[in-house]
């Protein structure tokens, strides 16, 4: 092997992730090539710094490592499941109605679509009633299907859901990643 070893090969060599033959061929080159040996020493030093930094956190830093599915994550999943059950139970008849209409094809596309839309509108009304204590939210977010501003309503709902989803995921990732 006369060509110099690239950085990826050097890091794989130090990680012990090269196959046996490639590893020994690389080692042979390293014995003969001062330039590659120097780069290997630099990478090895850098790996040592990474070892120390990721193993011994700075004082005041968060020292705790949480598993990806930690207790808080499980709690969130349980809460989400509970919310789903409440939403389903709160408008059970509507869901059943929607399911029945989705299964019943009467041959009239426009008529069928109107029936589905009516079912969805009913579901949306039920959910709004379920969330009726949140008056401010209802005032801020216009009725998505109300005449006059249907698109703005749906965009507002999507925006709020998106923001909640993003913050929740950021929080969960930080919980599972921080050391």
């Amino acid at each position: 092997m006369n060509a110099h070893l690239d950085d990826e090969t050097l890091t794989l060599f130090l990680d012990g992730e090269l196959d046996r033959t490639t590893r020994l061929t690389a080692a042979q080159h390293l014995m003969q090539c001062p330039a590659c040996r120097e780069r290997l020493i630099q990478w090895n030093a850098f790996f040592t710094a990474l070892d120390v930094t990721t193993t011994v956190p700075l004082p005041g830093a968060e020292p705790e490592t949480r598993p990806i599915l930690g207790s808080r994550r499980l709690l969130w999943l349980a809460l989400e499941a509970l919310l789903a059950v409440v939403l389903m139970a709160g408008s059970w008849e509507r869901w059943v109605d929607l399911g029945r209409r989705l299964h019943t094809w009467n041959g009239n596309l426009l008529g069928q679509f109107t029936l589905w839309l009516a079912s969805l509108h009913g579901l949306e009304s039920d959910l709004r009633n379920l969330l009726s204590p949140v008056r401010d939210l209802q005032r801020i977010i216009p009725t998505p299907t109300a005449p006059g501003a249907p698109l703005a309503g749906w965009i507002a709902v999507a925006l709020v859901l998106g923001i909640v989803w993003w913050f929740t995921n950021r929080w969960l990732l930080n919980e599972s990643t921080h050391t």
Binding site: D15, E17, L50, D51, T53, T54, T55, T65, T177, T179
Partner: peptide, 10 residues
């Protein structure tokens, strides 16, 4: 990085 350098996993 944490799993490789902190925990030494392959």
């Amino acid at each position: 990085l944490a799993l490789r350098h902190g925990e030494g996993l392959s």
